[in-house]
Design a protein around this nucleic acid. Structure first.
Length: 299
DNA sequence: AAACAAACCTGTGCGC
DNA sequence: TGCGCACAGGTTTGTT
């Protein structure tokens, strides 16, 4: 489900509510979501640690811990990260639960107000990892050994938001290979964070067809692609991401995004193009993914 | 090097 | 109402 804007929205929620908090008890339900290591490794790696930051690279959430290890969460297609007061009934498919000590108990590290009560005088919060399809995963890894423990991180392309992607950089990327633009945008080794929704929206904004070869762009077209990547991702983050009809994507607090209301092509196959108002949007396939584009606007 | 297919799972919506 | 099929935001792996 979630692409860069959705993961970024979750990251901001973690930054507000989870960073600076100490992890108490950890529960693991289905082992599949900790398949990279084991339930014991996750529980041992998290229990008693304090979360120092909430970072994101592409669709990966990376939370450094005061132990020196790092927590990685990937939502894949149907994963959600939600916070709730301890004791709140959990939804189906809740596979990992992290109990957070009450806020304000950590001297020195706390971000929120030090609310001066005794530890334990209020229920702590819980962070839930919920994932019906169990494609997502949760792992504690050693960042000093990332090439072995999370090799895909080391091989990932630049993240346009968290790391930046200059026009010169994008020119280097598109000219150094001859790839169809849609599969290229989806390839996390090339640029990190773009998925099926935003690839289509970016190409429509840039007025480029999904099948155009990356090394066939004019300098002006390269500029349009560069601008579109930043504009679309930026607007989507401002809107809190896209929540589709099935409401699978919700942020940390259970709220939906609103960028779905601004989609110009995704999910609109067969409709008239909103931009040119003359052509009908075509649905086709690239990289085994449904792709919608306007043959009039996009060349 | 790049394109393609299948695989990993569960839920939902649609046609019959 | 019930059943079967197609399809879904992602990524990896193995083949052409």
């Amino acid at each position: 489900m979630p692409e860069l804007p959705e993961v970024e929205t979750v990251r901001r929620g973690l930054d507000r509510l989870v960073v600076g908090r100490r992890v108490g008890r950890v529960e693991v339900g289905r082992e599949r979501v900790v398949r990279r290591t084991s339930p014991e490794a996750l529980i041992h790696g998290l229990t008693g640690t304090t979360i120092l930051a909430a970072n994101r690279r592409g669709k990966y959430l990376l939370l450094p811990l005061d132990s020196g290890d790092e927590l990685m969460v990937h939502l894949r297609m149907s994963g959600q990260l939600l916070v709730a007061r301890a004791g709140t009934p959990r939804p189906a498919h809740t596979h990992v639960v992290m109990h957070l000590d009450p806020a304000g108990e950590q001297p020195g590290v706390g971000r929120g107000k030090q609310r001066g009560g005794q530890p334990g005088d209020q229920p702590g919060d819980e962070v839930w990892f919920v994932d019906p399809r169990t494609f997502g995963e949760v792992v504690v890894f050693d960042p000093g050994n990332v090439a072995v423990e999370l090799p895909e991180l080391a091989a990932m392309g630049p993240d346009p938001i968290s790391e930046g992607l200059s026009l010169a950089q994008l020119r280097g990327i598109v000219r150094s290979r001859s790839r169809q633009l849609k599969p290229m945008l989806l390839d996390q080794h090339v640029i990190a964070g773009i998925g099926n929704i935003y690839a289509d929206e970016i190409l429509h904004r840039a007025r480029l067809r999904p099948g155009r070869l990356s090394d066939s762009l004019s300098p002006a077209a390269e500029r349009r692609l560069h601008s579109a990547i930043h504009e679309i991702l930026g607007e989507a983050i401002m809107a809190g991401g896209s929540t589709l009809g099935d409401a699978q994507y919700l942020d940390l607090f259970g709220d939906n995004g609103s960028y779905q209301d601004d989609h110009k092509v995704y999910g609109r196959g067969g409709e008239r193009c909103l931009t040119c108002a003359t052509s009908w949007l075509r649905t086709t396939q690239y990289a085994q993914r449904t792709t919608v584009y306007c043959a009039n606007c996009q060349r």
